[in-house]
Lab assay of single mutants.
Amino acid sequence: HHGSGALAALHADGPHAGLPVTRSDARVLIFNDWEERKRSEPWLRLDMSDKAIFRRYPHLR
Rank of each mutant, 00 (worst) to 15 (best):
L46E: 01
S4W: 12
W43A: 10
A8W: 05
R27N: 01
V21K: 13
S4C: 15
I53K: 15
L46F: 03
G3W: 13
D25R: 02
W43M: 08
R27L: 07
R39G: 09
G3H: 11
T22L: 03
H16E: 05
R45M: 09
T22S: 09
R23P: 12
G14D: 03
R23I: 15
D50H: 07
H59K: 00
A12W: 08
A8F: 07
R55G: 09
I30T: 01
G5H: 12
M48N: 03
K38T: 08
R56E: 08
P15Q: 06
L60C: 00
E36V: 11
R39W: 09
H11V: 05
E36G: 07
F54Y: 12
A52N: 08
I30S: 00
D33I: 13
H11G: 03
A9D: 08
E35M: 15
H1Y: 13
G3F: 12
A26D: 00
L46R: 00
L44W: 04
D47Y: 04
E41Y: 08
G5F: 10
P58T: 02
I30K: 01
R37D: 15
Y57W: 15
Y57M: 00
H1S: 12
L29W: 02
D25E: 07
S49W: 02
R27C: 11
G14N: 04
E36A: 11
H11E: 05
L46M: 12
M48P: 07
D50A: 07
S4A: 11
M48V: 11
E41A: 06
H16G: 03
W43T: 08
M48K: 01
S40A: 12
W43P: 02
A8M: 05
L10H: 04
H59I: 00
R27V: 05
P20L: 03
M48S: 02
K38W: 07
D33W: 07
R39M: 09
R56I: 10
R55E: 13
I53A: 00
N32R: 14
K51V: 12
A26T: 00
H1C: 14
L44V: 07
T22A: 06
T22G: 06
R56H: 12
H59L: 00
W34T: 15
S40N: 14
V28C: 11
E36N: 09
P58S: 02
L44H: 06
R45P: 10
H11W: 13
L46Y: 15
L46C: 05
M48F: 07
E36T: 10
A26K: 00
R45Y: 06
Y57F: 14
R27I: 06
H2S: 12
Y57G: 01
Y57A: 00
R23E: 06
R55F: 15
D50T: 07
A12I: 13
D13S: 13
L46H: 02
A17V: 10
A12L: 12
R27F: 03
S49K: 01
S40R: 12
N32S: 08
L10V: 09
A6S: 13
A9Q: 13
P42C: 07
R56M: 09
A12N: 09
D25F: 03
S4K: 15
S49M: 02
R37H: 06
H11F: 08
E36S: 13
E35W: 15
N32Q: 13
L7N: 09
R56A: 15
H1M: 10
K51P: 12
